[in-house]
Amino acid sequence: MISDESMKREYYQALVERDSAYDGIFFVGIKTTGVFCHATCPARKPNYENCLFYKTAEEALLAGFRPCKRCRPLSFPQGQSPLVQRMVALVEENPEKRWKDSDFRELGIHAATARRQFKKNYNMTFVQYARARRMGIAMKSIRTGEKIINAQIDLGYTSSSGFHDAFSKIMGRTPNRSQKIKMLYANWIDTPLGPMVSIVDEDFLYLLEFADRRGLEREIERLRNRLNASIIPGVTDRSKQIENELNDYFNKGLGTFKTPIMLLGSDFQRSVWEQLITIEMGKTATYKELAGLIGNPKAVRAIGNANGANQLAIIVTCHRVIQSGGALGGYGGGVERKRWLLAHEQSAVQRLLK
Rank of each mutant, 00 (worst) to 15 (best):
T286C: 05
R224T: 09
E17K: 15
I148M: 03
M171H: 11
L155P: 01
S266M: 09
G194L: 11
G330M: 02
K240G: 05
R105Q: 06
L254W: 10
I220M: 11
G329Q: 13
N244D: 13
A60I: 04
C318W: 00
K140V: 00
F36A: 00
Y249M: 13
Q346F: 03
L83H: 10
E106D: 10
R18Q: 12
G79Q: 05
Y54C: 03
V200N: 15
D212N: 13
L254S: 12
R143Y: 00
P297T: 13
L74V: 02
T174W: 06
S3P: 02
E245L: 09
P82N: 08
I170G: 09
I148S: 03
M87Q: 05
D212A: 10
T286W: 03
E221H: 11
M1G: 09
S141L: 09
M87D: 03
G145H: 03
N150S: 13
I314N: 04
D190I: 07
I199K: 13
P195E: 13
E106V: 03
S347V: 06
Y22N: 10
R105P: 00
C51Y: 01
G34E: 07
S75W: 09
P46R: 09
A211N: 13
V197S: 15
I220R: 08
L83D: 10
N225P: 00
S159W: 10
I109H: 05
T284C: 08
L227P: 09
L312I: 15
F26S: 06
D23S: 07
R72N: 14
S239A: 09
T125E: 02
E245P: 10
E58P: 00
A306V: 06
T284P: 01
S271F: 00
Q80G: 05
D237I: 08
K354T: 10
V335A: 04
D154V: 00
E217I: 06
C68W: 06
I181C: 04
Q179I: 08
N123T: 07
G295M: 12
L62T: 05
R116N: 14
S266R: 12
G108A: 09
D154P: 01
T32R: 15
S3C: 10
T125M: 00
R213P: 00
P192C: 02
D237W: 03
V88R: 10
C71F: 00
A166V: 07
E280I: 05
Y54W: 03
A21I: 01
G79K: 04
M135I: 02
L216M: 10
T236M: 15
N50K: 08
P73S: 08
Y206N: 12
P95Q: 06
I181Y: 07
E96G: 02
C318Q: 03
L342N: 13
E219C: 02
G292P: 00
Q350Y: 01
R143G: 01
G172Q: 08
T40C: 11
P42Q: 11
A39P: 09
G64K: 07
N296D: 12
K120P: 06
E221L: 08
Q128T: 14
D267W: 13
G34T: 07
R222I: 05
V88M: 07
V16S: 09
T259K: 12
K140C: 05
V28L: 15
A14V: 12
V88A: 08
V272D: 02
M139D: 15
A130E: 04
Y249E: 11
C37P: 00
V272F: 04
L208S: 04
L52S: 09
R173Y: 06
R18K: 12
